[in-house]
Simulated assay, not measured.
Amino acid sequence: MTRDVPDLFKTLAHGLGQIRSVSMLIGCIMAVAFVQPAMAICQLVADAPYRQLLPGEARVWNASLQAGEVQIRYIGHSTFELETPKGVRIATDYNDSVRPFLPPTVATMNGAHSTHYSLNPDPSIEHLLYGWNPDGGAMDHDMTVEDVRIRNIQTNIRGWDGETRRLGNSIFVFEIADLCIAHLGHLHHRLTKEDLTRLGQIDIVFAAVDNTSTLRLDSLMDVLESIGPAMVIPMHFHFAGALQAFTGRAAEAGYEIVRAENAKLIVSRASLPTKPTAYIMMPGGA
């Protein structure tokens, strides 16, 4: 049985309409799938948008991390390796003694002493960020590398002679996905109101807890209270009894004490603890 021509046109039009609807649905699904994850806004006003793609450029996402996740490895001393969803790897307090297994994309350094900076950095490191100016004066960083914004706040430091070295240390802040992570470096004094304003909201803090060459525990606990992070990850606890003394004080201050099973942590905003937590990681995440 043959159809009239008008009926055939109606059938074709209906089929095209269904195809158009399916195409629109697929387009919506693809649009949702490729929505860019939100950058963390640590400051009240933080200009940290994703870099716009160049014509013909595609984003390649690391399959091991979801868009809102950050991987943290504790390498040792004051060195952590942060990995972003796009595979950018950052080594903090990069030095010649304790390093990640692979050269990082970004390495930050501080000027306290040789376990916090490198005289022979790997030449394949794309961005080497000094926390102090070897020539004296300020050293300001504020840059976006793929899906992470990195900025610093300089603080003073004491030399081996006990004299103050102005701007010898930097607190580096990493804005990754929807998290703000601060590495306090070799901090030697309490933070000022201006420092805290520049820091903004911080979710995770890496803090030196040696109780000897950086801050004494009383001062450190005051600094942590003023910052108010959800999670504190201690570092620089090479002196005997330093870690135990810190965990004792942290417990007294109301922190939940969690001892990690290994030196790797994947964290997101959704997984942040609701109660302030001291998360104890042992070195060995290379």
Rank of each mutant, 00 (worst) to 15 (best):
Gly17Thr: 08
Ser21Glu: 14
Ile41Lys: 09
Gly27Thr: 06
Ala13Gln: 09
Glu57Phe: 00
Lys10Ser: 12
Gly17Asn: 03
Gln52Trp: 06
Ala38Leu: 08
Val32Arg: 05
Leu12Arg: 12
Ser23Cys: 09
Gln18Arg: 13
Ala13Arg: 14
Val45His: 09
Pro49Ala: 03
Pro37Cys: 05
Thr11Leu: 15
Val35Met: 12
Pro6Ile: 03
Gly27Leu: 12
Ala40Cys: 01
Pro49His: 03
His14Asp: 05
Ala38Tyr: 05
Leu53Cys: 00
Gln18Gly: 05
Gln43Gly: 08
Ala46Asp: 13
Ile19Trp: 06
Pro6Lys: 11
Ala38Met: 10
Met39Leu: 03
Met39Tyr: 01
Ile41Glu: 10
Arg20Lys: 14
Ile26Phe: 15
Leu8Gln: 02
His14Tyr: 09
Val35Ser: 03
Gly27Cys: 08
Lys10Ile: 15
Met24Gly: 06
Ile29Phe: 11
Cys28Ile: 14
Tyr50Leu: 10
Ala38Thr: 10
Ala40Val: 00
Val35Gln: 10
Asp7His: 01
Ala40Arg: 01
Met39Trp: 03
Ser21Lys: 14
Ala38Pro: 04
Gln36Asn: 07
Asp7Trp: 09
Arg59Met: 02
Leu44Ser: 15
Met30Phe: 05
Arg20Asn: 15
Gly27Met: 12
Val45Trp: 08
Gln36Asp: 10
Gln52Ser: 13
Ala40Ser: 07
Gly27Trp: 13
Glu57Trp: 01
Gly27Ile: 01
Val32Thr: 06
Ala48Met: 06
Asp7Ala: 10
Val5Arg: 05
Ile41Thr: 07
Arg59Ala: 02
Val45Gly: 04
Gln36Met: 10
Ile29Tyr: 04
Arg51Met: 10
Ser21Gln: 13
Leu8Asn: 05
Leu16Thr: 06
Gln43Asp: 08
Gln18Leu: 14
Ile26Gln: 09
Gln52Ala: 13
Phe9Asp: 03
Leu44Glu: 15
Ile19Phe: 11
Leu8Val: 07
Ala33Ser: 06
Ser21His: 11
Tyr50Thr: 00
Val35Ile: 12
Leu8Cys: 03
Leu25Ile: 06
Cys28Tyr: 07
Gln52Phe: 11
Gly27Glu: 14
Val45Asp: 05
Ser23Trp: 08
Gly27Tyr: 13
Cys28Arg: 08
His14Phe: 12
Ala13Pro: 02
Phe9Gln: 07
Lys10Ala: 14
Ala58Tyr: 11
Gly17Phe: 09
Ile19His: 03
Pro55Arg: 04
Cys28Lys: 11
Arg59His: 00
Cys42Thr: 09
Met24Pro: 00
Cys42Phe: 01
Pro37Ser: 03
Cys28Val: 15
Val32Tyr: 04
Asp47Thr: 07
Ala31Thr: 12
Ser23Leu: 11
Leu44His: 12
